[in-house]
């Protein structure tokens, strides 16, 4: 799976749950910019975990500052899962 596909899924999931226009999503956008509260964030994490069959570790999210970091993190988790199942 390419990072472009992952980015697309993350972008669509985040904007669908926060009800923001997709144009508001860039790599420098933050959850705060999207007015996402804790319930939005939990819904986003659960949706992405289900979609990619990965497990997000909440503590690992602490260093994430924007959507670019978030996409890279999800990409890393998907790559780890792929490597494990190879």
């Amino acid at each position: 799976m390419t990072i472009e596909i992952i980015e697309d899924v993350v972008r669509n999931t985040v904007t669908r749950i926060t009800r923001k226009d997709i144009s508001q999503f860039t790599r420098t956008t933050t959850f705060k910019d999207l007015e996402a509260d804790s319930l939005d964030i939990v819904q986003i994490l659960v949706a992405l975990e289900d979609h990619f069959d990965i497990e997000v570790v909440d503590e690992e999210l602490e260093s994430i500052t924007n959507m670019g970091d978030f996409i890279d993190y999800i990409n890393r988790k998907v790559a780890e899962k792929t490597a494990r199942s190879a």
């Binding site: 804790s38 319930l39 964030i41 939990v42 659960v46 909440d58």
Partner: peptide, 9 residues
């Protein structure tokens, strides 16, 4: 507990 995070933890 923070409810949203607690159900994940």
């Amino acid at each position: 507990e923070h409810p949203a995070m607690a159900i994940r933890q």
